[in-house]
């Protein structure tokens, strides 16, 4: 019982170190501190989608009205094109739920300065 609860807790919060090992998959288009083909990731948790100043988003992302809560980001990472049809993040997604939670945990804890 306790073991199950701990597992659920781990899944809920994620492992930032494990997420850091997954983050290089994003490196064709993203960086933490600066915009590239995709927008910067620093400060993404709590940010309104399509709101990094100076970054040219797709109309679909600008219209999405999403705020990047952990849950929304995890949902988007599971299926970017299905979650925001028309996004330029034309990537099939991260299919493993634990990897997604870990990746979000890394992004939430990333040191950006």
């Amino acid at each position: 019982m306790l073991e199950g609860a701990l597992l659920l807790a781990a899944l809920a919060t994620g492992d930032p170190q494990a997420g850091e090992a997954i983050y290089p998959r994003c490196a064709a288009c993203h960086a933490l501190a600066y915009d590239r083909v995709g927008p910067r990731h620093c400060g993404v948790i709590g940010r309104r989608a399509g709101s990094v100043a100076g970054f040219e988003y797709s109309p679909a992302m600008k219209r999405s009205k999403l705020t990047w809560t952990r849950e929304n980001l995890e949902r988007f990472l599971a299926d970017p094109v299905g979650t925001v049809p028309g996004t330029t993040m034309t990537y099939a997604g991260v299919p493993d739920a634990k990897e997604r939670v870990d990746l979000v945990a890394f992004l939430a804890n990333a040191k950006c300065k």
């Binding site: 998959r25 490196a27 288009c29 993203h30």
Partner: peptide, 15 residues
Amino acid sequence: LEQGAVSAYLGAVPL
């Protein structure tokens, strides 16, 4: 960058 590109193309191929 190359590692990221591999992942990006891998994620694009099925789409």
